[in-house]
Amino acid sequence: MIDIGLQQVAVERFAVRDAFTISRGAKTFVDVVMCVVTDGTFTGRGEGTPIYYHGETAEGCAAAIEALVQAQGGVPDRETLRTLMPPGAARNALDCALWDLEAARTGKPVWALAGLTAPQPVRTAYTISLDTPEKMAQAAADARARGFTLLKCKLTGDGDQARIEAVRQGAPDVDLIVDANESWADLDVQAQARALADLGVALIEQPLPAQADAALAGLALPVPICADESCQSLADLARLGDYQAINIKLDKAGGLTEALAMAHAARAAGKRIMVGCMLASSLGIAPAFLLAQFADWVDLDGALLLAHDREGAMKVANGYLSPGTLWGEAIITDAQRS
């Protein structure tokens, strides 16, 4: 048994390049919780972004981490952590820090420790924030000019068809997915889906409030529906029979450990997978990048939307995301080399 301690926990703020706007409002910055764990020789880092619609705050997550470590007399292992802490950003930060520490301690990268293949660049969606049709069309054109060929458009349930028509004019050759963020509660989902299908939309994310999932039963829709707010952790999968896909986010799931279990269970259930994120620095995106290697859709632009990122940040070129150097890499000691 390796004794692991908490070296640091901190709340850090990152400014958003432009306001990030969805149906629930706009954000100009994001606060994250960052923690460092240590075995006395090596360290590991992890980052979590609070799930605001659950009432989480970065300060609350930091306090929860400190309280858990104090109560346990140290940092528990990953599997024990899943039993002691509920899913959310605090557990995500600790879980990912433990993976990072193990990579440093064993000299094996996290992808190898997790039984995955070496990560390759993946095509990521780029988010077009909710705005007027004209401004969304311009944002889509700008994103396409930067090399993005997959765009994710935020919708609000009012004037959505006009927005997507405008986006299509701004970027006629891109692949489109849309995220309603639970805003279609009073709409005819079938009619909305048919209209968007005619515009080439390939996926509709969370059209209805999470508690209204039953309304999807029996609907024959021309576009697959992806659960986001309805799919928080592994425990939710059993009741998502009317969704064709799930959006796995490490902050919702509570870490890479839970997210990997979700991905395997989703595949076994015949569901397709999107790997998404909250606004986060590259430290928060890097663990999800490993999961993205076998996803059907990747939406990991959280760090790309920030005004500034961390040193060693992930890179993007022509819409493809590549790993940085700030998480999950093996540290080979002289003793291990010999």
Rank of each mutant, 00 (worst) to 15 (best):
A261I: 00
P86W: 08
E66L: 11
L155M: 13
G88L: 05
G107L: 12
I164V: 14
D100R: 14
T132Y: 10
V122N: 07
L116E: 12
F14N: 07
A93H: 11
T83F: 11
A10H: 05
A217F: 00
Q161Y: 10
N318I: 05
P172C: 13
G73S: 12
H54P: 07
R337Q: 12
L155S: 07
L84H: 08
T333M: 06
G241K: 06
Q206H: 04
T333I: 04
V223P: 01
A195T: 02
I22L: 14
T28S: 15
I225K: 03
R82E: 05
E56Y: 13
T21H: 15
E59W: 12
W111E: 09
K249R: 13
V36H: 14
S183W: 04
T106G: 11
D131V: 04
A220Q: 11
L151T: 03
D3E: 12
P109N: 09
S129R: 07
A162V: 06
L68V: 11
N318A: 14
A90T: 10
F294W: 02
E59N: 13
A26V: 10
G255T: 00
A139R: 14
Q161D: 09
N181M: 06
D213Q: 01
Q206D: 00
A103H: 09
P109D: 08
L221W: 04
A26K: 15
S23K: 14
W184D: 03
N181S: 07
I225Y: 01
L113S: 12
G270W: 00
A93V: 08
E102W: 08
P87M: 07
R45V: 13
D251M: 09
Q169K: 15
P121C: 10
R310D: 11
T325S: 15
F20E: 14
L326W: 02
A259I: 00
A303E: 01
Q72D: 07
C61E: 14
R144I: 04
L306E: 02
V189Q: 06
P209K: 03
N181T: 04
K108C: 09
V189N: 10
R45S: 12
A64D: 15
A118V: 08
A217N: 03
R146D: 13
K135N: 13
L199H: 07
V37P: 12
D175I: 04
R146T: 10
Q161F: 08
L187V: 11
T117I: 06
G159T: 01
F289S: 00
A104D: 07
C61A: 15
M274S: 03
A313H: 04
Y126N: 11
N181W: 02
K252S: 03
I273N: 02
P209Q: 05
D77H: 11
Q8F: 01
T80E: 09
N181E: 02
A97D: 13
L68K: 15
D236P: 02
M136H: 06
C226Q: 05
P209A: 04
H264A: 06
I4W: 01
F14M: 07
V122D: 06
I246C: 07
E182M: 13
A10F: 03
R272H: 08
I128P: 10
D3C: 05
L240Q: 03
G159N: 03
Y52A: 15
R168C: 14
Y126V: 05
L130T: 08
N247A: 02
A93S: 12
R13H: 07
A202N: 02
